[in-house]
Nucleic acid binder design. Structure first.
Lengths: 341, 341
DNA sequence: TTGTAAGCGTTATCAT
DNA sequence: ATGATAACGCTTACAA
């Protein structure tokens, strides 16, 4: 019986295999494998011959075959709702670098804020990776459960979920938001609006809860559905003004900048006519005018922590880690006392 | 001789294999494979049995094994200098989605503006992928050559390089920059500074060349080394002011916003005291005050085009495609006539 | 230290 | 229409 002749076509041109190197060096494939893995002791004589042969032939191991043989791909997946949000690309960027240091590659997927797509994307990602990092997932708990049930490490970022099979690292937005709210109240504002960000996001719920706390201080808090983008903030400016408020707490910097833009267009000034706070402290926030009062959410630290946890899981550690990183309010020029009226 | 018992440990828990499904369904592995691939005709009787067995066992094909067998991984790589630049994540986001539609996954890597790392990252990426998309590479031509010599599709984005083995899709920045410069000259500015962006970038060279064109119109053009970030723009504000110019052409929106921020801090107003132009038209540019005069670089279209080219290459088409997409100036409020002095 | 060969989970050829 | 089975390129247990 003769085997088929495959892979000799143009695309994906046949690369040099371990067998050819072995033959050229006059050793067995096992020896070549050992030399490249540095796994077992090989006499320097053979090592030299192998290396020379490999060099001459331009051999590099086929990673796919290696992966299949050892049962790990050295690739992890990361799924985020929207790559275009600075929030996430800072996180991703850090994870990329941390993973690379440990010899891992990262497949990135973006669900485009589409909750329904999250699970399918997660499954697909898990098929070709050793583990999955979920950024701010809004999928149902049962869906998350199904993902982790596939037996591979899953770490959830920016959403608290009490499943013991899941490891999580979250930023505590509540306290920073509370401080921002108190700051505004202390400034003397009595009528503020809270803008709701991405519906269904856990972080969003935390922030809203913190903002509502203001009511206990006798401050009127109007809640307006907004969204998490520049356009969203810009769009709701009219509604905000209709409430007669003197301060607005935005769900993130993007929305805050959108609102400020809308205000400016109407000839209003920040903070003289309206105080505005953001959230996240994206790099822009320092450079817009006025510089934004916001909360710094350490996405880089979060990324580093997420990888740490993932690395542990990949290493066989038990899941269930719970990490919380605190956001910090940062006070800049977009908030001030309301006009004496 | 007894084989080893592997993969029965905890991590990477053994998944159900095609063999188990075959056994459960009482058919051969070939049949199962056929059912899942839809490749050859299988009687509906057996198809049903296979599907049922697979369902019951929770079988999903091992993508790695598939890849090894068919010789393609259905994964492509993309390498960018800095994921944190809106410029790039818009591009990536589009490529992510286009690739996904075609059943491909994308491994993202970020060279952190480190030219030296580019080649090594490219090689590493090519090892586990079917093709590579290079975003604004600054690596030497010979290095690019080495990458494409590995026999897999390589498409270069945002850099013109005349190697016939390379396919490129670039944004023509020259003409848009020229128009921006002319616009400023027409407004009456006679002393302008051009800020240099990322050193070594092809796009940057194009823009600088366009800006210098102003000299032929009798406009004084001072060139200042700046960089491509918000901080860079902010940092050079003093130098800009020292030239006594009335307008500054920034290499991108980030730097422009940085300059405006520096100007504002010094109590100067844009555009009354200084006109400023950006480049790229990132989403922020519409929402800062004043809204930025800039050039729209269609990164989304570029992403779509890049994938188109890559898909063709993956399909066996010949390399060497040259695609050019024009940037378009967009005039907003950050430019105006200089103060009568 | 080195070689032999089984096994990783598929696909695809060839024979039936 | 099915089934055996070689092959994909590697790792590693075991024997020598």
């Amino acid at each position: 019986v003769v085997g088929q002749q495959r892979g000799n076509e143009e695309p994906g041109r046949d690369r040099v295999t371990i067998r050819q190197v072995a033959q050229a060096a006059g050793v067995s494939v096992a020896t070549v494998s050992r030399v490249f893995a540095g796994s077992a002791a090989v006499s320097s004589d053979l090592t030299g011959r192998v290396l020379r042969a490999a060099e001459a032939l331009g051999y590099t191991p086929n990673v796919l075959a290696q992966s299949l043989a050892i049962g790990r791909s050295k690739v992890v997946g990361i799924l985020v709702p929207n790559l275009a949000n600075p929030h996430f690309y800072i996180l991703i960027k850090r994870i990329l670098h941390e993973a690379e240091r440990d010899g891992y590659r990262v497949i990135v997927a973006d669900s485009d804020e589409n909750v329904a797509a999250e699970k399918a994307l997660g499954v697909s990602l898990l098929q070709r990776t050793d583990g999955l990092i979920l950024g701010a997932p809004r999928a149902r708990r049962s869906d998350l459960r199904e993902l982790v049930d596939r037996g591979k490490p899953v770490v959830v970022v920016n959403r608290a979920v009490d499943d013991p099979a899941l490891s999580t690292v979250v930023i505590d937005s509540f306290d920073a938001m509370r401080q921002l709210a108190v700051h505004v109240a202390d400034l003397g504002h009595r009528n503020v609006v809270y803008l709701h960000g991405a519906a269904g996001s856990w972080q969003e719920k935390e922030r809203a809860r913190a903002a509502r706390g203001l009511r206990r201080r006798g401050v009127q808090v109007t809640e307006i559905r907004c969204g998490a983008t520049l356009e969203d903030g810009h769009r709701v400016t009219g509604q905000v003004l209709d409430t007669g408020c003197t301060a607005v707490l935005a769900p993130n910097d993007l929305a805050a900048i959108g609102v400020i833009s809308g205000l400016t267009e109407r000839g209003l000034r920040v903070p003289e006519d309206m105080s505005v706070t953001g959230f996240d402290d994206i790099p822009f926030s320092r450079f817009v005018s006025p510089p934004l009062t916001t909360a710094f959410t350490p996405q880089e630290d979060t990324g580093a922590a997420a990888w740490q946890v993932m690395a542990g899981l990949l290493d066989g550690k038990r899941p269930g880690t719970r990490l919380t990183i605190a956001a910090e309010p940062v006070f800049r020029a977009s908030t001030a006392a309301p006009r004496a009226s």
